[in-house]
Design a protein around this nucleic acid. Structure first.
Lengths: 229, 229
DNA sequence: GTCTATAACCTGATAGAC
DNA sequence: GTCTATCAGGTTATAGAC
């Protein structure tokens, strides 16, 4: 996020745009502000990117593509370790949530940009991001369905989406913790937060199938996706 | 949301502003758009409200105050029914969530406006809304602490905030259900959604206190706050 | 590739007639 | 209370010199 002299003009523009879009939104940020923060000429945006809309898409692509790759790689890695056996719910949720939480630690812009997207449901940008997610969701849903075969996929999707939303909201509104309740909170210890989150999420999804036994032999709650990244 | 000829100019402006702010944000909405949708003169905004900022606060006040009143009234009603005994976790969560879900059914602008606030953390508006919530949170936290006395309040707040966030995200991104998974979903049956949500949330909060027994005598999962409104 | 200059337009806010 | 007219400034985008 810090503009270095070595970075190219287009990278400096992307850095500045990411920062300002995250904080102020798309419409709330002018090209003038972006180019001033990036310390480039105002005309450079229209030269390197075609328009403001194209710049927005470039910013999102740079954020989302690597994160979704990490998630899919973490899932593939867990499946490889399971050696053909169905994954535990915990393993699937960890592959889904850990990259996002780790990204949040190093770069809080990402979660802000995710939040911004909730208000662009019909735009061209929304469809663009939708395509990115649509490649990921079937993979994770299939893994969850193998972990909990007796739960209808529709319910699995609905409540995993709910749990996912809680993570986004919690990270997005992390200041609420200091604002409304003094003292330490779980976000100060992301590893502990992840463990508790996965524990809570897994028990919630398991509760959808009261009679489900599920194979618990390769249950590794402390296992981290961190090492594969 | 429908402009009627009988409504006053300031009400027409508030309706139009609420609609456009919800869809486009504050910075993304011009006074010209608002006055055109409201079918009033452009100068009327500065006459009835002092400025655009004051209009935004008026819109939020009109949305938030009644909802928080409903939540507090539902909690007070449940406590009255419990006759001095601690409430169940379910009863507290229902008082917290039901007014929001019911508001979402009739007016989806509200949840969009809530979402917009996540990106105004430092502004004067953020502080304004914070004061509204700050009146509510201690009341609900106290009720939860009575229901689960062995759980530290910090953890109760953190995970209730998480569960709350999941509701906001789910309602805000309700289109995801149709987008990513065909067929019926829980949001088509809000009463069932509420029951499942409260069930899931209560078991999640109870899991924070493994040794907790808790009084389950006035446990009424199907009880609705609807009748008191 | 980078700059200046400028076009064409929209913004919030206000003054003053009715 | 409601209107027109207008202010000073900001907006995206582009044309053309270097």
């Amino acid at each position: 996020m810090i503009e270095e002299a070595t970075k190219s003009t287009s990278e400096r523009i992307l850095d500045a745009a990411e920062d300002l879009f995250a904080r102020q939104g798309f419409r709330g940020t002018s090209l003038k502000e972006i180019t001033e923060l990036a310390e480039v000429n105002i005309a450079a945006v229209n030269y390197h990117f075609r328009s403001k809309d194209a710049l927005i898409r470039a910013v999102y692509e740079r954020c989302f593509v690597p994160l979704n790759e990490k998630r899919l790689r973490a899932l593939a890695h867990a499946e490889q370790a399971a050696n053909g056996a169905p994954l535990t719910v915990e393993a699937v949720l960890r592959a889904l949530f850990e990259p996002m939480v780790r990204a949040w630690i190093t770069d809080r812009n990402f979660i802000l940009l995710v939040g911004r997207l909730q208000h662009e449901p019909d735009s061209e940008l929304g469809g663009f991001i939708q395509r990115l997610y649509q490649a990921m969701i079937p993979r994770f849903l299939a893994a969850l369905a193998r972990a909990l075969p007796s739960v209808p996929e529709g319910e699995l999707f609905f409540w995993t989406h709910y749990l996912f939303g809680g993570v986004v909201y919690t990270l997005l509104n992390s200041h609420d913790m200091q604002r409304f309740h003094e003292g330490q909170n779980l976000l100060d210890t992301p590893d502990l937060f992840l463990d508790r989150l996965i524990e809570l999420g897994a028990s919630a999804l398991r509760a959808l199938a009261p009679t489900e036994l599920e194979n618990a032999d390769n249950h590794t709650p402390g296992h981290s996706v961190h090492e594969v990244l």
